[in-house]
């Protein structure tokens, strides 16, 4: 009974949230709408990153993998004339494929070595983009990438409309990512993180599962890259450099990586801080410094990230409403 009520209130909250997302562009200025589009894309980027971290490996190549999706989708559309919606899917798949291939050298390493290995692999990919003018356009990258085709009278060039497109694609992707995490696949990722030897001993092919996590995360990172490329219309190797990766790490760490929503909270909160507060105050160029300071502050004072704060607030709220011990973690049946 109580669970029914909490389920209803969860759904209610979800609906309110969805309504807010839907009316959001209406209350934003044109340039804020552009930022909202990028934010939705970054939500997918950081949520896919979290899937990767479930197995315990932190990659420094995730933004480059996003770039693989962006480059591949742009090239499929521009060079081969593939319709953009299809090229986006192909771009995401290319990113997944790249991860599958990279798994073989990278998963020989763990922890710190994996971190460095993933960074090196990313730099190699970026060098390839820089070095080969055909087809990658060298340091200048690819320009005049075809945009998403208009749907009837709806122009996808309008940030408002592209926002809704991204919202739909990213919502579906987040749903899939969430289902993966809640299923046995997610449980197995966690198991590999905490005790890979024990997981092996009961039949879990740890290499295959690490590869699966990497490929899935890369597919969705690649999709976010494709959404980005066909919106901005131009991409280059610098856009996917390690500085961008550091932002992803900061979003994830400040938000917290213990729950599905932590990194998403992180990217949303930091984007709001960045765009609304910093930009309006004219501190824009201080972004790296402010981000660094926020990272240090959150590591010092919010060891569980923003998600921990939200959970705590939720608990206090619940405790007031219903003084009962916390219900155990939901199981997927």
């Amino acid at each position: 009974m109580r669970e029914d009520i909490s389920k209803i209130s969860k759904w209610g909250l979800g609906l309110v949230f969805l309504a807010a997302l839907l009316v959001l562009p209406q209350v934003l200025s044109y340039s804020q709408r552009e930022i909202a589009v990028l934010l939705v894309i970054n939500v997918l980027l950081v949520a896919s990153y979290r899937l990767m971290t479930l197995t315990g490996e932190w990659s420094l190549g995730h933004v480059v993998i996003m770039g693989v999706g962006a480059y591949a989708s742009a090239l499929f559309a521009k060079r081969l004339g593939v319709p953009v919606p299809v090229s986006m899917f192909l771009g995401a798949s290319t990113a997944g494929l790249a991860a599958a291939v990279l798994s073989f050298p990278l998963f020989r390493m763990k922890g710190f070595y994996f971190l460095i290995g993933s960074f090196a692999a990313g730099e190699v990919i970026r060098l390839v983009w820089k070095y080969f003018s055909t087809p990658f356009g060298g340091p200048k990258g690819i320009k005049l990438i075809p945009g998403f085709p208009d749907i009837g009278p709806i122009s996808m060039f309008e940030p408002e409309n592209y926002y809704y497109l991204c919202l739909a694609v990213v919502s579906l992707s987040l749903f899939i990512l969430y289902r993966i995490e809640q299923s046995r696949i997610g449980l197995t990722f966690h198991a590999i993180h905490w005790q890979d030897k024990l997981a092996e001993s009961v039949g879990v092919g740890t290499f295959r599962y690490r590869m699966l996590a990497f490929v899935l995360a890369s597919f969705f990172a690649g999709l976010s890259g494709a959404l980005y490329a066909h919106y901005i219309g131009t991409i280059n190797p610098t856009r996917f450099d390690v500085e961008e990766m550091v932002f992803v790490l900061i979003w994830a760490i400040v938000g917290g990586t213990n729950t599905f929503f932590g990194p998403i909270i992180g990217v949303v909160a930091l984007t709001i801080i960045n765009e609304i507060i910093l930009r309006s105050l004219g501190f824009d160029s201080a972004r790296p410094m402010i981000y660094g300071a926020l990272l240090i502050l959150s590591v010092l004072f919010l060891p569980k990230g923003l998600e921990g704060v939200v959970q705590k607030a939720g608990r206090i709220f619940k405790a007031r409403k219903a003084p009962e011990p916390t219900v155990r973690r939901e199981q997927n049946a």
């Binding site: 024990l198 997981a199 039949g203």
Partner: peptide
Amino acid sequence: LIRTFQGTTLFQEFSVIDNVRIGCHN
């Protein structure tokens, strides 16, 4: 062919039942 470990080796962060559920992998 299944082995157990000399030192206690469990998924310490998991619930007891989830430990056994992982065991059901096969």
